[in-house]
Amino acid sequence: MFRNTREGLALALPAAIFSTLLFLVPVGILLSEAFRFEGGWSLQGYIDFFATPLNRTVFLRTLKLGALVAGTAAVIGYAAAFCIVNLGPRARGTVFGMVVLPLMISPVARTYAWIVILGRTGIVNEAITGLGLSDTPLRLLFTETAVFLGLLQLFLPLMIISLVSAMENIPRDVIPAARVLGASWLAVFFKVILPLTKEGLVIGGTLVFTGSLTAYITPAILGGSKVLMLETLLYQRVNVSNDFVSASVIAMILIVMSFSANLLLKKIASARS
């Protein structure tokens, strides 16, 4: 009864065609722009892009911040996930809910909080001047640290969620068994927990890394033009200098990264089932 292919395609194709026309085609043209040079095809766009020191700095900074955020999220994520898994069922649900909730809230709102915290009249500076550590307020906004904190707060929940679901799959008595066999907590972590939650770590890490790479709001609000990242650089290139070739190069970098991360996730997902 469900073998009528034409009927199935009629149902599935509108969505596919819509996505193709609105996504694949325009994005494809945009990506091709960097390869067009004086009427022919060339890599000149890419060569020029990476020849500019600022572009290189932004490229490397984006990778660096992405990796830092992912790494820090992993450390905090393991501690938090371990604690959550150890809770009773009711407390676990509540705490897990509190971890997930921020994901539903506008990233603008989430990032704006850091202006309140790190701004000239923000809580940190009030404390520093109040304690007499410094006479003038420190410049905390528009630093890499600010962007780092904003991104970490934005994406940490993704890491915790991935690790909690990975840890829930650890057989119940494995950790006590390892302890009984004489493993120190450090050994338990590296020899038992880490290998058993590797997939969750990779999934969470990829989500956080690509999330940080392709974030716009956080670097825009907390980094400004002082701490550009790839997305804010793209915006500047288009809006300030009408430079669509650079935009196309940046788009390619972001898509390649995002796409390979997605492939990795798919591979993990299919290896598991």
Binding site: A16, S19, F23, V27, E231, I255
Partner: peptide, 20 residues
């Protein structure tokens, strides 16, 4: 194809739609 919008960063989609 249907999942593509998740993979492609939004800023690129916006720009591509504007331009083309």
């Amino acid at each position: 194809v249907v999942a593509a919008p998740i993979i492609v960063p939004g800023i690129i989609v916006g720009l591509a739609l504007l331009r083309y």
